[in-house]
């Protein structure tokens, strides 16, 4: 990933306060090149807010976030994102989605078509790309968005619950794409509720509760630290010890 020194993502005491609602942070987090980090926490723990701060959607109230050494607002185009919701335009075909997003990122028709072609290959949707996205299954929608995010070849890839609601076959395919992205040198930060998936897939796990990092480490070291049989048990013990 040219032009991006390690760590690709640095969250340095970042805090987000809402007029109504809980405070998220202060949070500390680092994700390096080739690393796949999973952010784990219950609903309302602050995972989505953290993602949005990293993406520059929410401005940080305290602390700082750097993507490739720059604040998120200036690092647009350095991070690709796949939201939890299968956010598609139902009346556009899959191919039209890819061309539309490609034009937003490249700003030139020729480059956009090249990017869309590359993304089309990564989605693996084949002829289905010429069908309206409103007719797609949840798995196909996720592959469409993930394919585009991968084609962008950004140093940082953010995935919000990438396999939630998918059938086994679709989930396996998506996991393989995510692992390959990390193995090819990208920094990947994902959220998930599926502890088994995280245990197998992630290089490092970050437990988050009530807007703060509770613990972090490689899955195996966390299991050993808490004397747990699985990550679910480790998470429960980590959060209990923090109360």
């Amino acid at each position: 990933m040219a032009g991006c020194d390690d760590p690709v993502l640095l969250v340095d005491g970042a805090v987000k306060r809402f007029r109504r609602g809980p405070v998220v942070g202060p949070l500390w987090l680092r994700v390096s090149r080739g690393e796949l980090v999973a952010l784990i926490g219950p609903n309302g723990a602050g995972k989505t807010t953290t993602m949005r701060m990293i993406l520059g959607i929410y401005p940080v109230d305290d602390g700082r976030i750097l993507v490739c050494g720059e604040p998120p607002g200036r690092a647009r185009g350095r991070a690709a994102f796949v939201p939890e919701e299968t956010a598609i335009y139902p009346r556009l075909t899959g191919w039209e989605h890819l061309v539309f997003y490609s034009r937003l990122y490249t700003g030139s028709r020729r480059e956009a078509l090249q990017l869309a072609e590359r993304a089309a290959g990564l989605t693996g949707l084949g002829k289905a790309l010429h069908r309206k996205a409103g007719e797609y299954s949840k798995g196909m929608k996720r592959r469409l968005l993930l394919g585009f995010a991968l084609a962008l070849e950004t140093p940082l890839l953010l995935l919000d619950e990438p396999t939630s609601g998918l059938d086994v076959e679709a989930a396996v395919r998506i996991r393989s794409l995510i692992r390959n992205a990390a193995d090819s040198g990208r920094a990947v930060l994902m959220t998930s509720h599926n502890m088994l998936e995280v245990e197998r897939l992630a290089d490092r796990v970050v437990f988050i509760a009530s807007g703060r990092v509770v613990d972090e480490g490689a899955p195996r070291s966390l299991l050993e630290k808490y004397g747990a049989r699985d990550l679910e048990e480790a998470f429960v013990k980590a959060v209990a010890g923090h109360r």
Binding site: R52, G56, R76, A87, I88, Y101, L104
Partner: peptide
């Protein structure tokens, strides 16, 4: 629909 979140992170 959540597409706004995707638009928000593009260079738009």
């Amino acid at each position: 629909s959540g597409t706004g979140e995707l638009l928000a992170v593009t260079p738009l």
